[in-house]
Amino acid sequence: MLSALDKLKSRYPHAHVWSFGDSAEMADELVQLVIAGDKKASCGSLAAWSQGEEAISPGDYHIVLDGSDHPACVIRTISLKLIRFNEVTAQDAAAEGEGDKSLQYWRKSHQAFFTREGTFSEEMELIFETFLLVESVQRD
């Protein structure tokens, strides 16, 4: 019998597989925001993206895992843009759907995240991704 992940991989054969954030708690929180329809964007440091093994392009599918490494949903990349941390707009922050969706909240939480990653700078370059929820996955 195929696992839920194997079934998704067969439906989306070239999908990237990953989870949000840098902890199981963050992965759970952020994937639930996606499923609820609040989170429609994400970003990462250009440094981290450059170290990734797979290039990501608009149109790509992603199987997003929860904090227990179980598939939670499938998303599809709509757009990617290069932007500096200090150029992120209130609209960009709201699209990420986190906290109160304000730019102030976004700056504080992302500064903490990128500081933990060791990449934070006001001038740092980010890859800002918008995406569409394709399907949520019911856990067996």
Rank of each mutant, 00 (worst) to 15 (best):
F120S: 08
F120Q: 09
G37C: 07
R139E: 11
L8D: 06
A15W: 04
L8R: 02
Q138P: 07
H62L: 11
G21A: 00
S23L: 02
A90Q: 04
A24S: 13
H110A: 12
H70P: 00
D28H: 08
S3M: 10
A93I: 04
V88L: 03
Y61D: 15
R107Q: 12
A90P: 03
E129T: 05
T77G: 10
R84I: 11
M1T: 14
L5G: 00
L33D: 11
L65E: 04
F128S: 06
E25V: 02
L82A: 00
W18H: 06
Y105M: 07
E25D: 09
Q111W: 12
V34P: 11
A93W: 00
H14L: 09
A24V: 07
H16I: 08
F85R: 00
A15S: 09
P13G: 08
S10M: 14
I56M: 05
P71N: 13
E25R: 03
K9E: 09
L132W: 05
N86F: 10
T89Q: 02
S68N: 15
C73A: 15
S136Y: 07
F20K: 01
L80G: 08
E129C: 00
M26F: 00
K108T: 14
Q138A: 14
S3H: 05
A72W: 09
D69Y: 13
Q104A: 13
A48Q: 07
T119H: 14
A72E: 08
G37D: 00
F128N: 03
A24T: 10
W18S: 07
A41F: 06
A36R: 10
